[in-house]
């Protein structure tokens, strides 16, 4: 019923004995105490608010068991900024006002984290990339502008800086 697992989240290892049915999103929120990863729809995995980066891939943390991530590396919204500097993706949303209530924003940013590792994208690709996160406030226009702002910023990074902002 229970199992001891260890998950590296934003570079820190969290070890706990958990119910085998515990969802990854609840491990992140309840065990690690990182509540920036949100729970929206909670059933079907349609809303995307719980998106995190698992071993380099954007995934919905409500559609995985925590035990599946034993030994894995997870990046959440709390792992994006460095000290006082916002991540280029966050900065794009800040500059272009890419959010209103902000509930979906962590999921959007983590989805875009994988997408922007290779920043050359058309408008249509930007919209397709965000199709797994539902925003109920903005109508997406400002979000697309924020992503374009972030793309320009990522393109301007040196290879070393890029590695620093995209460690996984």
């Amino acid at each position: 019923m229970k199992r001891s697992i260890g998950i590296t989240i934003n570079g820190e290892v969290y070890e706990e004995t958990v119910d085998q049915r515990l969802l990854l999103v609840d491990f992140i929120r309840e065990v690690a105490g990182l509540t920036g990863t949100h729970v929206g729809c909670s059933v079907e995995g349609r809303c995307g608010a719980c998106t995190v980066v698992l071993n380099g891939k954007a995934v919905k943390a409500c559609l995985l068991l925590a035990v599946q991530a034993d030994g894995a590396s997870v990046l959440t919204i709390e792992g994006l900024a460095k000290d006082d500097a916002l991540h280029p993706i966050q900065d794009g949303f800040w500059e272009k006002h890419g959010l209103q209530c902000g509930f979906c924003t962590p999921g959007l940013l983590m989805t875009l984290y994988e997408f922007l590792q290779n920043p050359k994208h058309s408008d249509e690709e930007i919209r397709t990339a965000m199709s797994g996160v539902i925003c109920r406030c903005t109508g997406y226009v400002h979000i697309v502008e924020a992503v374009k702002h972030a793309i320009a910023a990522v393109e301007a990074l040196s290879p070393e800086e890029r590695k620093e902002w995209f460690p996984v």
Binding site: G45, G48, T51, K57, A58, V59, K60, L63, L64, T111, E114, F115, T128, A129, S131, G132, V133
Partner: peptide
């Protein structure tokens, strides 16, 4: 199929 996150899994 689905969306990028679903296609990743």
């Amino acid at each position: 199929i689905g969306d990028p996150q679903i296609r990743n899994r």
